[in-house]
Every structure is written in structure tokens, then in C-alpha cells.
Design a protein around this nucleic acid. Sequence first.
DNA 1: GTGAAAGCGCTAACAT
DNA 2: ATGTTAGCGCTTTCAC
Lengths: 348, 348
Amino acid sequence: MAGVTIQHVAQAAGVSPTTVSNLLNGRANQMLPETRQRVEAAIERLGYRPNRAARHLRTGRSRTVGLVVPSVGNPFWGTFARYLEAAALTEGYNVLLCNSERDPDRERRYVEELWSDGVQGVVLCSSLPSLEHVMPLMDRGLQIVAFDRAAQANDADSLVSISIDNAVGSQLATTHLTSLGHRRLAFVSGALGSINRKERYRGFTAALEQAGLSTENTLWPGASGEQFGDVETAELGRRAARELLATDDPPTGIVAINDMCALGVCRGVRDAGLEVAKDVSVVGFDDIVLADLYDPPLTTVRQPMPEMAKAAIAELKSRVEGPGTGQGRSLLLRPELVVRQSSAPPRG
Amino acid sequence: MAGVTIQHVAQAAGVSPTTVSNLLNGRANQMLPETRQRVEAAIERLGYRPNRAARHLRTGRSRTVGLVVPSVGNPFWGTFARYLEAAALTEGYNVLLCNSERDPDRERRYVEELWSDGVQGVVLCSSLPSLEHVMPLMDRGLQIVAFDRAAQANDADSLVSISIDNAVGSQLATTHLTSLGHRRLAFVSGALGSINRKERYRGFTAALEQAGLSTENTLWPGASGEQFGDVETAELGRRAARELLATDDPPTGIVAINDMCALGVCRGVRDAGLEVAKDVSVVGFDDIVLADLYDPPLTTVRQPMPEMAKAAIAELKSRVEGPGTGQGRSLLLRPELVVRQSSAPPRG
DNA sequence: GTGAAAGCGCTAACAT
DNA sequence: ATGTTAGCGCTTTCAC
């Protein structure tokens, strides 16, 4: 039996659809206990499940939020998805997970699809500097929380941004190295195209300046002009490390744009016949599961995922359920340095 | 404007809703080019998007398949999700991704939710030996493809199973080691609770027997009675390696239940002051992204993800669109050994 | 305490 | 080539 409807239940219980609906929507108190039991029995017996499409069509509401991530293949996003789902579930929401593959067009199509699916709130993890491709939907009332992307001047008024303070994060990482005594540092990244990357680099240079070190020639030159996926980022790190360590005055400490990249850097260090920590300290960013599993375990900057996920859902919930379109705001959480064994004082 | 409906478009274009609907549903040819343009212009101008709930309610169809995975935090599943989505997209389907956290109850709830959302086909990645918790839905017409789980005798008649041949896979891995000359092998795994694990162990012992080796004491004794998550699996591997290598007659080759576990084993080998490949060969299973990134790169058994994803969608599609409930079937794809640097001939 | 009836936005016969 | 109409399953006034 594909289609057990509320009518069938009503008939089986000898009541009207209204009564069944009342029971379904928490108005059970206004009916005789006996009636209630009859209805409940009928629901059970027939295996009735309300049709969400009909329900949604009728009410215009939907207890679902969308989550658009650049790539579910990346553990960072997979982990975030889990936390967001957990946070959503506690608030009575479901999460619809979409994978943009970093394609702006797919991103837009997904958000549009979610909107026309009745989803009123979306957590958008976009690497794009401009969110104008979803502006039309926001104008129509779609609530968007941009995650892992700091607010921009030309963002929509109602946009909520949640991210860590990337500059602080990489400052933490960099200062960790300078405090250990490193004087010659390098920053390894793919193209500094995204806001995050720029911020991380900014934190890196800020920390250097604070330590009285020159920022010249600290950005790995191969970092510009290229765009990399997640796997390629590791390869990039590997190449960067090899090249950097082959120079006259090689760095003793390397700050990588993220953990994938840092893992690659570690590989490159070994390729160069050197040892991570002993010869070259490496610090990553994100604290993916593998950071702790790697050999040596990676010193990295952890994003407070559970808090961020909770905040994202809270924002969405209050805006979707609350009155009117709230003003935009930006929430910058403080990341945390996790010191493991890939960083140590420089040799000699 | 939240609610631009087909009526608004019709009115704006000076036509009836039918005409708009016709255009929307690929019946554009049966109207005057001029009419068509007027309608298209109106749609564009009003920013109209069809309401999926209404559409679905009306047609009873839904171009969405569900994907239930044990954990999106695990790269293995993240990767599969990407391939499945790609395969679905080419067939005009969307994928709804759900995360069961290996909780049978969540698994059931998700599948029920998908069903009441109008989803007619689900790819279920369940580690459970019995799928009876989704049987009622299958009886109602829900099509299920069980992924990464070999068919069982008490499965529903219409169940489709897609997985690799796990026994063949670990036989491949094990024979690789025996061919290299290893005579003392060990198999490291968490509890042999799932079908897959049992199959992999079976392949392991089969390969040993084929090589004329004893299977006694080859299963790491700590492997029984415990259930492990993904992170813990690595820790388990590490512990297993340390314990195994501390015995009188330590193995020179270790086959791990999966890559996470293998990574842990590698760590354990180092903990014991030994070197992977040189002293102990390690082979994993799954070929996660990190297998290639690790140092040394991990020899492992690759699952043909794209093919499996395509097959899953093809099965679902033909069953959802085709007539009647198809008979169940089981598709066992052949895995492939990927030889990297974590395996080598034994010392001396 | 319970029921009748209208309508959410859309599609697909069935007219014309 | 285009329009009229009925109804998908549900919720929610408004009656009784």
C-alpha cells in the first residue's frame, strides 16, 4: 500500500480527518481519550505517515534547513555536517545536505532548489567572495547563514556570517612557532583567492611583525595564480616544501593554509631527506580527524565546530520563526591552537 | 515576494496556467513561439520557481533519491556520496544525504522520513546484518539498494545489494603479501560483527590456505567483543600493531580491515621502533584519499566507487520508473589492489 | 468534542 | 494552440 492517507485513517477509526489531524498536530487534549486511542490504533495498524509534500503545501512551512558545502569528500565539511545535523535535530529541524563541488553555478542551483522545496533557511559554505548569486532569493525571504566566510561590505543586509577569526587563528599558529624560537618562516597556500586565505595570511604576517621578523619572501611564490581542490592541496604542500627546503636559506617553520596542505608539506619535508619537527616545524589549520592520526601528529588550529553549528542553527531558527527579516550580523568565534608533535624548537 | 505562483505567471503573460505548465514540462513545441516567449519572459521577470511540494503532491513522483550513510565525517562515505550524486544528476535525480551515525533507529527514522517525503528510492549504507527495520516500507513500495553489504538469505525479495566482493578483495591483499614472501601474517580488525568484516577475514584465511600457510593465531585476539567508530579504529590498529610486534614470533605482514585501521597499524609499527615496509608490510582496504597521502603511501584495496554509484542509481531508476516491483539481485564488483610503498618483501 | 468544507500550487485529462 | 477543471493530502477556520 503506497498511499495511506489521513482519510483512510479517519475512516478506519470512525472519525473525521480533522480529528486525526488534530491528534497529529498536538491538539490531542481537546478530544476524548477513547477517540484518541482509536485514532492512534488506526495510525499504527495502517502504518500511516503524513505526506510531507501535502503538509508543506498547506502550511507553507518546512522544518528543513539546507546545508551547502564545497565538498562532502572533505572530512572538514563532513564533520561540520554532522555537527550541524545534530544541532538542527535538537531544534526539531532536518538538514538537507548539498554538495556544490565549489562550482558557483551548482551552488546557486542548489540554493534555488532548496528555496523552491520550501526550505526557508540555508547554511551556505561558499568560498566565493561575492554572494550576489543568491541575492534574489534573499530578497524573497530566504534566510542565509554564510559559514566559514567573513562578512563583506557588499553582502546583503540580512546576511548572517559565522566563521572563526582566521587572522587570529593563523596568528596563534605563527606565534607558536616564533615563540619556539623559529626566525625563518614560510606560509604555504594555494592562490590567496578566498577571504579566508587572505585573512590567514594576514594573521601570519601580523605575527611575524609582532615578533620583529621580516615578512619578505615568506609567502611561497608558487601560491599565486592557481586554484586547487582538496586532494591537490596536499600535492601543492608537498611541492612547496620541496622547493622551499632546496633554497639557500630554508625556513625552519612552515604554516600551511590547512591540514591537507600541511600533510603534504610533511611529505615534502621527508622527500627532502629531513624530519618533521626535528628539522622543520609544520603547523596546519582546521584539525581534521587525520591531523591527530598522522605521524607525527599535526600541530594545528582547531575550529570550534559544535559551537559554530549550534550558532548557525540558532540564527536560522530565530529568523525563520521570528518576525520580519532580521538585520545581518557577523559572528567570529575564536579558534584554538592544538599543539601536537609536528612543531618543536628549531635545531641548534 | 515569497509566493510567485504559476497563476501569477499566467496572468502576467496573458495565458492560462496550463500553458505555463506545458512550457515547464517540456511541451513547449505545442505552442506558438510567440506565446512561449511571452511566458518565458514572465517567468524570468517574476523570478518564478515551481513549488516542488505542489508538483510532487500532484504527480506523486519525486526526482529525488535518498542516501543514508553511517557517517559523513568518514571520507569513504563522503567520497561515495559525491559519486552517487554525480551519477544521480546525470539521470536527472537529486540526492538527499542522511547521516545515520550507525544508529539503527536513526537509520529507520531517516528512511521513513524519506518515504513520507515522496522519495521512492533509497541507497542504504547500513552495517546492520538485518534490514528488517525497513521491511515495512519496502512492502509499501520503497525501493532500496543496500550498499556495501552483501545480500543475506532473510533479505526482502526486492532488495538490491551492491558491494564489492570483500572476500576477493582481502584475498588480493593477502596474496600480495604471500607472493612477496611473507609467511607470518596477521589480520587486524574490530569485532567481526558485520558481514563485510567476516567476508574480509574469510578472504584472508582463504589466501593463507592457498599459500599453504596456517591460519592459526592470525586473527588479532583483541578483535572480538568490541565495536569501534572510525577514529577509534585507527587507535585499535595502533594498539594491535604494538601488541603483535611485541610477541615472540611477530608477523611480517599485516592486513588491516580498512585504511583507517591500517594507518593506525603504521603508527603502531613506528611506536615499536620498526619501519613500515622494511620491517613490517601493511595493507589496508578502501583506498581513502589519505592512503596515497600517507608516508609511506599505503598499499590498499580500492573499491570501484564510480561504477558502484552508477550501478546503484541505474538500479533505483529502473525500479522506480519501471513497471512493478523488480526481483532482488546482488551485484558484486571486483575490487582492485593498489600497490604502493607500505608493502615490500620481508627482511632477509 | 467533532465534522464539513475550502484551498495551498500544481498537472493532466478533457474540452474547445 | 490554448483554456477549463478536478483533485493530489493535508490543515484550519467555522459550524454544530
